[in-house]
Design a protein around this nucleic acid. Structure first.
Lengths: 113, 113
DNA sequence: ACATAATTCACCGAAAAGGGTGAATGATGC
DNA sequence: GCATCATTCACCCTTTTCGGTGAATTATGT
């Protein structure tokens, strides 16, 4: 998921403070520009940020408001969908969420460290 | 996804022919009973098969009909959802489908073999 | 032409996922 | 008690995913 990575959460925080260019964002992290570019692409795909190209500069802005209608609808339907996501996934292209929804008799697993 | 694995598709085919016990199914494949048991658990979770416990025997049946209402609805809404799955996944617990939906400018990737 | 902004390519290494196994455990039937 | 049906445990191995990189490429600004 888009927000799984700490770096992406930090990038979002950065952009929540103020808009910035890719280079600006990159300069505040210790990873390379290419890597930041990738993260930004992902966040944009997730509709969490917005990109405004102006000449050779790409201005990035945090999007707090996207698809809130869908969000609320989904949240309301969540219990319905939760039990059906696995069967749906072969109709859509979503991944297997099987591991996310424990079975009734599922117990905690433990691995030797 | 539940149907990703060839073995699981074959198990479904087997059960579509007639109901059977776990052992029956396992005997027709070259993998171990435990492994078959795992696959069956997954298929059951995906609501693709149905289990009927009778004494120590678990009778398995193919379920062709489950959630067809939801299926049809989803199929109709597919184009709407396709563009929003990535943003939804951090609300639900679905996995990141980012790689499944190419960007406009995405090109084919090639790896040196 | 040259510098700068950003993306894309082709790869690497670590971590996670996935299917497999034998052994242990539960539960039922005889 | 012992055999049978099935699941669960604790692993192994292989494949896939994920974040990272340097180099190449595309596009714009001066």
């Amino acid at each position: 998921m888009a927000l799984a990575d700490p770096i992406r959460r930090r990038i979002l925080q950065r952009l929540a403070a103020s808009e910035a260019r890719v280079t600006d964002v990159a300069s505040e992290f210790s990873i390379s520009l290419n890597s930041v570019s990738k993260h930004i692409r992902l966040l944009e795909r997730a509709k969490l940020i917005e990109r405004n190209v102006s000449g050779r500069e790409h201005i990035l802005r945090f999007r707090p408001e996207p698809l809130s209608n869908a969000q609320q609808w989904i949240a309301a339907q969540q219990s319905f969908w939760a039990s059906r996501l696995q069967a749906i996934d072969d109709l859509l292209t979503a991944e297997d969420a099987a591991n996310e929804i424990p079975l009734p008799k599922e117990k905690k697993r433990a691995r030797k460290t």
